[in-house]
Simulated scan of single mutants.
Amino acid sequence: MRPRTPYRVFRVVALAVVVVALLAPLLWMIAASFKTNVDIYDTGKALLFSPTLDNYVTVLRQANYVQFIGNSLWVAFAATVLSLILGVPAAYSMSRFNMRKSALVVLMARVIPGVSLLVPWYYVFSNVRMVGGFTVLILSHMFVSLPLVVYIMMGFFDGMPLELEEAALVDGLTHIGAFRRITLPLAVPGVATAGILSFIFSWNNFMFALVLSGADTKTLPVAIFDFVGYASIDWGGLMAAATVVTLPIMLIALFVQKYVVSGLTAGATKG
């Protein structure tokens, strides 16, 4: 067989181009977070510069970012847990009892842009005096997290064999008992996948928190706007704040990627 050297060279070059295109903005953001505003504007100091931690000191001490980190963690965690509590049993019911109309409604909720509902949400929640609190942020995040959980778990339950549940029913368990004792323990990879993706969405969400949060409930993506002024932009502080937002979720995705892939592929095949 003829060696496939041209194809291998093309594949390596294509992968290198993609990696550089994806990593270059991230590396520039991290490097800029250690520069002063003067060094950021100086193209001669793109690679060689004197690093400083003043931007991170400003972010963590003077800008109340510790509070905003806590807000993001609380909203993402609460929205994810509530979405799993409601979405996993709903996905099981739709999968096992052929509730296709309900599944279509969930699919429509996935298709509808969440930003199109911000004005009605703001009108309704402002009339009941909920705008600016954590409750409205958690509910708004669940609008996307809950359909995401149901969508992932339906595919996962569809791929699980029915024989195990039928054997449990023969042994005297109810459908709820079979779900709780047999199906749910086997569905842990899918639950973990749905939970991780839901948490990542809530952590990165910007538009919902921008409109519905208050001064004390701002999340990290919204708090970045504090470094954008009317006449100037604090690029060093902005890049440090963006790094604080980005790196934790990237590390989480890096460590749990194999579980996400295994959960998605397990739900993509039928037993």
Rank of each mutant, 00 (worst) to 15 (best):
Val119Ala: 04
Pro185Ala: 04
Met29Tyr: 07
Gly237Phe: 11
Val261Thr: 14
Phe199Gly: 00
Lys270Trp: 13
Ala91Arg: 05
Ala178Ser: 07
Met154Cys: 15
Ser126Val: 08
Ala241Ile: 09
Leu197His: 09
Val211Glu: 10
Met154Phe: 12
Ser145Glu: 14
Thr58Met: 09
Val128Gly: 02
Ile30Trp: 00
Ile152Met: 05
Arg4Pro: 02
Gln62Leu: 05
Ser232Gln: 13
Met160Lys: 08
Ala209Trp: 09
Val228Phe: 11
Val75Ala: 06
Asp54Met: 14
Gly237His: 09
Ala32Val: 09
Leu107Arg: 00
Met142Arg: 07
Phe97Glu: 00
Pro3Arg: 10
Thr5Asp: 08
Ile152Pro: 04
Thr219Ser: 11
Ala91Gly: 02
Gly133Asp: 07
Ala209Val: 12
Arg2Asn: 06
Ala31His: 08
Arg180Tyr: 02
Val211Ser: 08
Gly237Glu: 03
Glu166Arg: 15
Asn127Tyr: 07
Thr217Pro: 03
Phe134Pro: 08
Val59Asn: 06
Gly271Ser: 13
Val9Met: 11
Thr243Asn: 02
Leu220Ile: 12
Phe49Ile: 00
Val20Asp: 08
Leu238Pro: 02
Thr52Asp: 09
Arg180Lys: 04
Ala16Asn: 05
Val211Cys: 11
Ser126Phe: 06
Leu264Ile: 08
Val244Pro: 00
Ala46Gly: 10
Leu251Met: 12
Ala192Gln: 10
Tyr151Val: 15
Pro120Cys: 02
Leu23Asn: 12
Ala168Cys: 03
Phe179Val: 06
Gly114Ala: 11
Met94Ser: 07
His175Val: 13
Leu210Phe: 15
Pro89Glu: 01
Val106Pro: 02
Asp234Glu: 14
Val191Trp: 03
Lys258Leu: 04
Asn98Tyr: 07
Glu166Gln: 15
Leu210Met: 15
Asp42Lys: 10
Gly87Ala: 00
Leu220Cys: 01
Val18Cys: 09
Ser262Ile: 03
